[in-house]
Computed example of a mutant assay.
Amino acid sequence: MNRTATPAYTLREIAGLPAMLAQYPLIRQLNPLLDLERYEELLRIMLPQNYRMVGAFSESGTCVGLSGFWIAAKFYSGKYLEVDNFVVEEAHRSAGVGKLLSDWMLQLASQEGCHTIMLDAYVTNSAAHRFYFREGFHIKSYHFFKTLTP
C-alpha cells in the first residue's frame, strides 16, 4: 500500500531486515535502552512471525514516523491488527504524522478483514494515551508482564 498522505509525507511499508535496521534511531526514541544488536536480534525473531513495518517519510526521504504491526487472530478479538512500537520523530509530532500512520493501519486492517486493532502503550506515556483515546481506542484489559531471568 503506497500513497502520498499529504504534500509533506509519503507512507509506505518498510520491508526487509536492512530497511528496518536503518530505522533504529527512530525506534530508539521509544526504546532508549534498546541497543542495535538487540534490535537486530529481535527483528530476526519477529520477521518470520509476519512482523511488518510502515513508515511516514518526509519530502527529503527521511523516515519521521513509523509503526510495526502484525495481523493475527485470538479468541477474544477475532482477526486483528496489532500495532507495535508506534513512534514519531519529536520534531514532527503534532504535524499529523501519527494520524496518517493510524489511518493507514486502519485501512489495511479493514482490507485484511480484521475485526479489531489493538496495541500496548507504556503506562507512563500519557501523550500516547491521549492520542489513542482521540483515535477511538478504549481500554479493554490489562496486559500483565513478568520478567523471567535465565
Results as ranks from 00 to 15, higher is better:
residue 60 S to L: 05
residue 52 R to E: 10
residue 82 E to D: 13
residue 101 L to I: 11
residue 80 Y to W: 07
residue 7 P to T: 15
residue 32 P to E: 04
residue 26 L to V: 11
residue 27 I to M: 05
residue 6 T to W: 10
residue 7 P to E: 15
residue 47 L to P: 08
residue 136 G to Q: 00
residue 43 L to G: 09
residue 134 R to W: 06
residue 80 Y to C: 01
residue 69 F to R: 06
residue 23 Q to I: 04
residue 92 H to K: 10
residue 62 T to E: 11
residue 98 G to C: 08
residue 44 R to N: 05
residue 104 W to A: 04
residue 59 E to H: 03
residue 1 M to C: 04
residue 107 Q to A: 13
residue 148 L to E: 03
residue 93 R to I: 04
residue 91 A to G: 02
residue 106 L to F: 10
residue 129 H to V: 05
residue 103 D to L: 13
residue 25 P to T: 03
residue 11 L to E: 01
residue 144 F to I: 14
residue 2 N to A: 08
residue 54 V to D: 04
residue 127 A to D: 13
residue 65 G to C: 06
residue 15 A to I: 07
residue 43 L to W: 10
residue 47 L to R: 11
residue 102 S to E: 09
residue 115 H to R: 03
residue 137 F to I: 03
residue 11 L to R: 02
residue 17 L to C: 08
residue 81 L to K: 10
residue 83 V to F: 15
residue 103 D to Q: 14
residue 38 R to W: 02
residue 29 Q to A: 07
residue 54 V to S: 03
residue 35 D to F: 14
residue 149 T to L: 03
residue 128 A to S: 09
residue 107 Q to D: 11
residue 61 G to K: 04
residue 115 H to Q: 05
residue 41 E to K: 15
residue 135 E to W: 10
residue 59 E to M: 06
residue 35 D to T: 14
residue 75 F to G: 01
residue 92 H to M: 14
residue 20 M to Y: 03
residue 107 Q to W: 07
residue 101 L to A: 12
residue 138 H to Y: 07
residue 135 E to H: 11
residue 3 R to N: 10
residue 73 A to P: 00
residue 133 F to H: 12
residue 99 K to L: 10
residue 102 S to M: 12
residue 131 F to T: 07
residue 24 Y to F: 15
residue 108 L to F: 03
residue 36 L to E: 07
residue 131 F to R: 04
residue 96 G to E: 01
residue 13 E to W: 09
residue 119 L to C: 12
residue 120 D to M: 08
residue 15 A to S: 14
residue 137 F to M: 01
residue 59 E to Q: 08
residue 148 L to I: 13
residue 14 I to Y: 08
residue 26 L to R: 13
residue 147 T to I: 06
residue 124 T to C: 01
residue 140 K to A: 12
residue 19 A to F: 13
residue 69 F to A: 08
residue 35 D to Y: 13
residue 52 R to M: 14
residue 145 F to H: 07
residue 22 A to P: 11
residue 52 R to C: 11
residue 76 Y to M: 06
residue 110 S to M: 01
residue 84 D to T: 09
residue 132 Y to R: 09
residue 109 A to W: 12
residue 125 N to R: 10
residue 80 Y to I: 02
residue 137 F to N: 00
residue 94 S to P: 03
